[in-house]
């Protein structure tokens, strides 16, 4: 066999193995996706949205408490996390530029984006839960906000930097003060990108479970008081799935399905915004 024939055979083997590993990987992922959809749709019903948690064995159990809890935790986290992230990102892109301080903030944020979220839970436990003596919705929201912050900060920074400097210069040349240039020109130019960053950041946080385990904790009943322990879809999912009760497990799948669809929608929306921007 000549060397070239050997190369051709090796090539065929490796290409086969790559295709095979792609098939293996993709079939695992399809498997997960399909059980999520099958179990999720099977468990979905109107009562899930209208009824709160119920003891195991009770047919009327729903997820209303977890859905509302999730939305509240999430809304408060975004309410503070999104603007703070955007403003900090604005500093990096518009004022800090390539300064040592700005670069350090970028580096640390990059690292924090991949840091274990359960550690943030421990931190919030120490500064909020322990002093106040109880788990609370606020604690959960703060943990989510801390996780969200670096993601939004970095995407805002990147997206604002994409705005051509000639645009800024043109506005300055008309005598506009810097803050007006940023708000009226830079933000407007980077709108789609920043929105994408926000959507992806928010989506990332929506699936977080670990940092809520010992901050917002859980509540099997509807609670809208942020100073009390609060249910979330993710922690409910964890508790229900690990329970021995079949009806609870079923509700766990419904929660998983709803949450995944929500997160996928945010991701797809984010991509569409970016595509639309590129299309221009």
């Amino acid at each position: 066999m000549t060397h070239t024939q050997k190369r051709i055979i090796t090539n065929k083997i490796v290409m086969f193995l790559s295709t095979l590993s792609a098939l293996v990987g993709i079939s695992f992922l399809l498997w997960i996706l399909s059980i999520l959809v099958i179990n999720g749709i099977d468990a979905l019903s109107m009562t899930i949205f209208t009824n709160g948690g119920a003891p195991p064995g009770n047919e009327n159990g729903g997820l209303k408490h977890a859905l509302i809890g999730q939305l509240m935790l999430f809304a408060y986290a975004s309410l503070f996390g999104v603007p703070l992230g955007i403003l900090a990102g604005t500093y990096l892109s518009e004022y800090g530029l390539k300064s040592k301080l700005a670069e350090t903030i970028r580096d640390i944020s990059d690292i924090m984006m991949s840091a274990p979220s359960i550690v943030i839970g421990a931190f919030v436990y120490a500064i909020v839960v322990a002093p106040s003596g109880q788990f609370s919705g606020w604690a959960g929201s703060i943990a989510l906000m801390i996780i969200m912050l670096p993601i939004i900060l970095r995407t805002t920074d990147d997206m604002l930097q994409l705005v051509p400097s000639t645009l800024r210069e043109a506005a300055f040349a008309l005598g506009a003060p810097k803050y007006k240039v940023i708000i009226q020109v830079v933000y407007r130019g980077a709108k789609a990108g920043v929105l994408t960053g926000v959507l992806l950041g928010v989506a990332r946080v929506a699936g977080e479970t670990a940092p809520l385990l010992f901050t917002s904790f859980n509540d099997n009943f509807l609670n809208t008081d942020m100073s009390q322990p609060m249910a979330s879809l993710t922690v409910t999912m964890y508790n229900y799935a690990t329970s021995p009760y079949e009806d609870w497990q079923k509700l766990g799948w419904a929660a998983a399905f709803i949450l995944s669809m929500f997160i996928l929608t945010l991701n797809i929306l984010g991509r569409l915004f970016l595509l639309k921007k590129r299309g221009k």
Binding site: I32, L33, I35, L36, G207, T209, W253, A256
Partner: peptide, 24 residues
């Protein structure tokens, strides 16, 4: 399509992988 679905799967919360692991 395969590339995008892989990216979307990366966005699925890890708690769901855990549930899949436990039950299946």
């Amino acid at each position: 399509p395969v590339g995008v679905s892989i990216e979307l799967l990366a966005a699925i919360p890890s708690v769901i992988y855990g549930m899949w692991g436990l039950f299946y």
